[in-house]
């Protein structure tokens, strides 16, 4: 069954005179793993934040799981079934790993369910041995995993990840790729990413942003063979 879980129509975001996102339409299907790529300043993260409710769009509409989410505050977007991981690890620094996950899991589940979710997510992301460590004491890679687990703790139907592979070693990127492959049967995933190796590993479909607009969209093969994409983003080689 093909079902659209995220639909964006004519979304624009401007900051003063700068049009960061220009009339973008986009959709994400259930169990789809979709990547947004593009050069710096292309508007990917702004588009991402507009979907999350962190940035208010100037025009356009957003539907999440059939509900209109345009201009909803971030917490209400999250409650529509969206798990969010921001570009810079955004965690409860003074709390332990399990406390971070518990807070997230408890938002939409009972205390007992939250405990089970925390355990399963620590196992999935390989951070169980750091359960009592303060998040602020963890290495960058583990912090990325903790935030991914936090985003998953609400059991979202849509997972939005902004540069989850940023700052990770190749081994850690491989691990992350493996985790996302496991997750894609449970949730739709939208990944904003710069790391083309990582994108090639995980993407089922790709959208390329350039100057606030969609430059190209399609399967990884179609996108990476696209001459215009090669020219503006990937390089001619």
């Amino acid at each position: 069954m093909v079902e659209t879980v995220l639909s964006v129509e004519g979304l624009s975001v401007s900051f003063g005179g700068v049009l960061a996102v220009d009339n973008v339409s986009f959709s994400l299907k259930r169990q789809e793993l979709h990547c947004l790529i593009g050069p710096n300043g292309a508007g990917k993260s702004t588009f991402f934040k507009a979907i999350c409710g962190v940035v208010r769009p100037s025009s356009g509409r957003v539907w999440i799981n059939g509900y209109e989410a345009t201009r909803l505050p971030a917490h209400r977007v999250a409650r529509l079934g969206v798990g969010i991981k921001m570009q810079v690890p955004n965690l409860l620094e003074g709390l332990s790993v399990e406390e971070n996950l518990w807070i997230a899991a408890r938002c939409r589940h009972s205390a007992r369910e939250a405990e089970d979710i925390v355990e399963s997510l620590m196992n999935l992301t390989g951070i169980e041995k750091y359960r009592t460590s303060l998040v602020s004491d963890l290495a960058h890679g583990h912090r990325q995993h903790v935030e991914l687990a936090s985003a998953l703790a609400t059991k979202p139907s849509i997972l939005l990840l902004d540069e989850p592979a940023a700052g990770l070693s190749e081994t850690e990127v491989d691990e992350l790729s493996s985790i996302l492959q496991q997750l894609k049967n449970q949730t739709a995933i939208l990944v904003v990413e710069h790391n083309t190796r990582f994108v090639r590993m995980i993407a089922e479909s790709i959208t390329v942003f350039h100057k606030g607009r969609i430059l190209a969209a399609g399967s990884p093969d179609q996108v990476f063979q696209n001459e215009i994409v090669k020219k503006v983003y990937l390089g001619s080689n």
Binding site: C52, V54, P73, A74, H75, R76, A78, R79, I84, M86, N90, L91, L92, E93, G94, L95, E99, I103, A104, C107, R108, S150, A153, T154
Partner: peptide
């Protein structure tokens, strides 16, 4: 306490801070 640590993270989780 979580809000004290990181208000934005708590909000992105779904709590009305």
């Amino acid at each position: 306490v979580a809000i004290r640590e990181n208000e934005e993270r708590v909000e992105l989780t779904g709590y009305d801070v």
